[in-house]
């Protein structure tokens, strides 16, 4: 099933949750919608599911207008952030729900339903919990039951809202890997929403980065990390150093200090320079584009994180390998191995 979203706009009172969103999702893809809270990613997911309606724009499944159908007809599996398991039903009945509410004409008989539910519980490896109630399960177990319940209706599309948001770090990592292999197995077009970049980059085939109701970039995890399209994406994904610079007469300045960086092709005016923390290479004083004094050093496993006051007035944090120990008070030169400059203050 392919999904096509065209020029979607959705307002809540005066707040623009979606501000002209276009998106194409290929068949069998596992797509991540990544963005900070309030970026519109959950609203987009809910509109695709039919739980919300846009003010304008189109949604098509396999080229067919989806907005003409209600959530009930769309055959979309939705996994809610807080799972929304039916609290008065056992795990088994939760998973069976979608099969039991089918119109009489196509409803399966009881033994078929039982077999299907058992099969799904096997798939999420929780068959031993069939008789429990949701309140008796751990967060990770509820998550998997919610997924099994959504899969019971053999959805054409699977949508997951912050699937790992409410779980602790260890369970989260396990479930990520599990979700990816499950997707590989069932191969349903899937979209999940997350505000956790690591999650998006690790699980998804493609990542859609959103901010303020707009799509900032669509690309593979490598694309969005290595070649961020906008300042927002660079700042949001990976740990970035952000410096306000000015481009004047072919020179890039930080404060009033010119930087030894090429300004070819850059528009004059206030801009922002982005460098990954680990892309700042440390050299002797006088080498590199920047110069600064080490203020403070802490060790994080294989790297040392140093706070450096740049001449030019900004203080930044860099991650340097530990082969050359830095000490507070050292004066060092810094050369960005890779950097990007975006126009605008």
């Amino acid at each position: 099933m392919t999904i096509e979203v065209r020029n979607l706009v959705k307002k809540f009172d005066s707040f623009k949750a979606l501000d002209g969103v276009d998106l194409k999702v290929d068949n069998g893809e596992l797509l991540a919608l990544l963005g900070p809270s309030g970026s519109g990613k959950t609203t987009l997911l809910r509109i695709i599911a039919g739980l919300d309606w846009p003010d304008s724009g189109d949604v098509a499944f396999n080229g067919e207008d989806a907005l003409a159908q209600g959530a009930r007809e769309r055959h979309v599996g939705f996994v809610f952030q807080h799972y929304a398991l039916f609290r008065h039903m056992t795990v088994f009945e939760n998973v069976a729900f979608g099969l039991r509410v089918q119109p009489r004409a196509i409803r399966k008989d009881e033994s078929t339903i039982r077999a299907r539910v058992t099969e799904l519980l096997d798939l999420v490896q929780l068959d031993w919990l069939a008789d429990r109630y949701p309140s008796q399960l751990s967060g990770g177990q509820r998550q998997r039951i919610a997924l099994a319940r959504a899969l019971a209706i053999e959805p054409r599309i699977l949508l997951l809202d912050e699937p790992f948001g409410a779980l602790d770090a260890k369970v989260r990592k396990e479930l990520r890997r599990w979700l990816r292999s499950l997707h590989h197995e069932i191969n349903v077009t899937s979209i999940f929403v997350t505000h956790d970049q690591e999650e998006a980059l690790e699980v998804a085939n493609r990542v859609v980065v959103m901010d303020k109701g707009r799509i900032e970039q669509i690309g593979s995890p490598d694309d969005v990390y290595e070649t961020p399209a906008t300042a927002f994406v660079h700042g949001f994904i990976g740990e970035s150093i952000e410096l306000p610079v000015k481009i004047e007469g072919g020179v890039i300045r930080l404060g009033d200090r010119p930087l030894r960086l090429a300004a070819d092709g850059l528009a004059p005016g206030a801009s922002r320079l982005f460098v990954r923390r680990h892309d700042m290479l440390v050299g002797p004083p006088g080498s590199g584009a920047f110069e600064g004094a080490v203020q403070h050093v802490r060790n994080f496993g294989p790297v040392q994180r140093a706070e450096v006051a740049l001449s030019g007035g900004e203080t930044i944090e860099i991650d340097a390998p530990r082969d050359r120990e830095l000490r507070a008070g050292d004066t060092i030169g810094l050369e960005p191995r890779r950097y990007r400059i975006f126009a605008g203050a």
Binding site: A49, G50, L51, G70, A71, R72, R74, H75, V76, G77, F78, F80, A84, L85, F86, F97, G98, V101, Q102, R149, A150, A152, I153
Partner: peptide, 8 residues
């Protein structure tokens, strides 16, 4: 919402 998306 969950019930409706499951076809109820």
């Amino acid at each position: 919402e969950a019930a409706i998306s499951l076809g109820a």
